[in-house]
Nucleic acid binder design. Structure first.
Length: 433
RNA sequence: GCCGCCGUAGCUCAGCUGGUAGAGCACCGGGCUGUUAACCCGGGGGUCCUCGGUUCGAGUCCGAGCGGCGGCGCCA
């Protein structure tokens, strides 16, 4: 009933002529009261529009406007009026006003915005604010853009299971749960399942959550995050870096088209667009750069937060660090045939001190090589039985990567914390709401 | 897991060397012919995180616990 009552919306009224009668549905965002007039900023899915209620035209219904609290759901009818004094230059002079669902006194005040604890305890309400609204719209567009990129390039979307039995990354970071009589874990990555699927579809991708039981108190970690992962058969390390740089460039330019208004609202201007290929430096070069900057790091050590920051400060566009040492990468990474101490792997770094946004590389596709590697790293081959077995039946060289949705979003929008990049964030200290 | 900071009204915070609490925002009432986080005047509102200790007396001092925030390690 109410959906069909609506014949315009906050965005669409700008296309209407002065004097046209429109019916809108939405929520009261803010309200300013005077004796004869009340100004309402109404919010709907499309944005914001100012409503003007005047005692003269609304008569006894003016009282209803007076009594309606902020965040009441309303249905209104009114006349389109262009006026310089209205935000956005257009407003609706009400001829009818109904409360569809009343609201209690809204607890989210201006000072509440300063309290992360309050804002996330009341996340189910605070997401209605203009900032969360914009970020979540951009997030939706980001996932849409990634989906577009992959499907335009002949990838097949697969859906990997969430319950798993063995670790893709380090075993210590798995969430354990009861699975009837057995132990199961929540997935950290769809990678292994993608590797099985490339022998059907050659190019596959997933967009789904990954779980990591890392007690990370940082602004770049969630325990549940959305993962964009791709895996490509017959592809070598350089091929997958090409995919990553194309994907990121596509996402950025598409976001500017799809949600430019929201992006401007959050960061004051459109996103800087990039063109592949990105700069690529080797792990060895990265170590040199860091040592020259006076950072204490030796070849063979992994980058910590300080190192990632120092390194990425040296760049103004995203760049790859390639060829990480075998010791600091997971067991499945392909050693470089010309230099067995390093892997055919890379991380894509965001510039300006931000650091890692994707991680990827070529996988070991030979059965015996992988088996030996698993044993050498002290892992139990029986836990990787099916993963090994796919290598006995025509597994070509292949490569893949994973990109964190919230991390990319946080970087692009310069958000203070990764929890701002998701609807209901999950961190070690937050499981509610 | 480690290091640091914090916990007083619905929210943000003040409260000096111990004498049972205050401001702004929000809310309610009144005023105001167009506001943009409206403005002006008035009002109500508090187990001072919990437990224990010191003291005639604890929001304030001491101890423990719980919760949150920031950073490190780990990663996307």
């Amino acid at each position: 009933m109410w959906l069909s009552y609506r014949n315009s919306n906050s965005r669409d009224v700008k296309n209407k002529a002065e004097g046209e009668v429109v019916r809108l549905i939405g929520w009261i965002f803010t309200k300013r009261e005077h004796p004869e007039k009340i100004f309402i900023n109404m919010r709907d899915r499309y944005g914001y529009i100012q409503l003007v209620a005047s005692k003269e035209t609304l008569k006894e219904k003016f009282e209803n406007v007076k009594e309606a609290n902020v965040e009441s759901a309303i249905a209104v009818e009114g006349v389109v009026k262009y006026d310089k004094r209205a935000p956005g230059g257009v407003e609706i002079h009400l001829t009818d006003f109904k409360v569809v669902a009343p609201a209690d006194i809204w607890p989210v005040t201006l000072s509440a915005l300063k309290s992360p604890e309050f804002m996330f305890d009341k996340r189910h309400l605070t997401i209605r604010g203009p900032r969360s609204r914009a970020v979540l719209l951009i997030r939706s567009a980001l996932i849409q853009s990634a989906f577009e990129y992959f499907t335009k390039n002949d990838y097949v979307m697969i859906n990997a299971p969430t319950f798993i039995t063995s670790a893709v990354e380090g075993g210590a970071t798995l969430f354990e749960l009861k699975y009837f009589g057995d132990k199961a874990y929540l997935t950290q990555s769809a990678q292994f399942y993608e590797e099985a699927a490339i022998c059907v579809f050659e190019k596959v991708f997933v967009i789904q959550p990954s779980f990591r039981a890392e007690k990370s108190r940082t602004r770049k970690h969630l325990t549940e995050f959305w993962h964009i992962e791709a895996e490509v058969a017959f592809a070598e390390h350089n091929d997958i870096m090409r995919v990553e740089e194309e994907l990121l460039s596509y996402i950025v330019s598409r976001l500017n088209e799809l949600v430019g208004e929201e992006i401007k609202y959050i960061r004051g201007g459109l996103l800087k667009e990039f063109t592949p290929p990105f700069e690529k430096i080797s792990y060895d070069e990265a170590i040199e750069i860091l040592q020259k900057k006076g950072v204490e790091i030796e070849w063979g050590e992994d980058f910590g937060a300080d190192e990632e920051r120092a390194l990425s400060e040296e760049f103004e566009e995203p760049f790859f660090v390639t060829g990480y040492p075998v010791e600091i990468r997971s067991f499945y990474h392909m050693p470089d045939p010309d230099r067995p101490e390093v892997t055919l792997s890379s991380d894509l770094m965001a510039p300006g001190g931000f650091g890692e946004i994707t991680s990827g590389g070529q996988r070991i596709h030979d059965y015996n090589t992988l088996l030996n590697k698993i044993k050498k790293m002290g892992l139990d081959p029986s836990e990787y039985e099916w993963y090994l077995e796919i290598r006995r039946y025509g597994m070509p060289p292949h490569s893949g990567f994973g990109m964190g949705v919230e991390r990319v979003l946080r970087w692009l929008l310069d958000l203070p914390h990764i929890r701002d990049a998701t609807l209901f964030p999950r961190t070690p200290s937050r499981l509610y709401p």
